[in-house]
Design a protein around this nucleic acid. Structure first.
Length: 164
DNA sequence: GTATCGATTAGC
DNA sequence: CTAATCGATACA
């Protein structure tokens, strides 16, 4: 996942102040900010700063835990085993497609409450280490080490991720 | 109102 | 490396 600092980050949507689209990033933390990009894909963010202050985290990738078949169907790809799970969620647009996340349905929902259409829970995963790397896919301030990846976890973002 | 860009992905 | 594709933003 990657962090976007808000008004101080040239790469963030919130850099130029609050707009209709990024309003949720200025709202209370723990809410979903879903935006449509390049005419084809959605990206999922979570607001992190207190209300009134911009800032959020972009989910670039995650590890599939359940509903594999459902995700595969949504993504339109064949999945034969854990080795193919990467195809499902290794990218911002991909994971949203796999989850069926759309701005219409999920933008602004409270991710800390299971009452909504989408939420985040604690699965008890033990994080060994987190690596900080430069962000990818952006044209401004891309050098800032605001990208966080779980060390040793194969389900990281990157279109070409997972070779070797 | 019109012009341009983009936190992407799939395809060559 | 380049095309696809549309909403938001910038500018007149």
């Amino acid at each position: 996942m990657e962090a976007y600092l808000g008004e101080e980050d040239p790469a963030a949507h919130t850099f130029s102040g609050q707009t209709l689209r990024n309003a949720v990033l200025f709202g209370p933390p723990g809410h979903a900010y879903v935006y449509f990009i390049y005419g084809n894909y959605y990206c999922l963010n979570v607001s992190c700063e207190p209300e009134g202050k911009a800032g959020g985290v972009l989910f670039r990738a995650l590890e599939p835990l359940s509903g594999i078949e459902q995700m595969a169907k949504a993504r339109g790809v064949a999945v034969n085993g854990p080795k193919d799970w990467r195809k499902l969620t290794s990218g911002p647009g991909r994971l949203c497609t796999a989850f069926g996340v759309t701005r219409d349905r999920d933008n602004g929902v409270d991710l800390t409450s299971q009452a909504g259409s989408l939420w985040i829970g604690d699965d008890g995963y033990q994080t060994k280490a987190i690596l900080m790397t430069p962000r990818i896919g952006i044209t401004k301030a891309a050098h800032l080490p605001l990208r966080y990846v779980l060390d040793g976890n194969p389900y990281v973002s990157g279109t070409k991720a997972g070779k070797s």
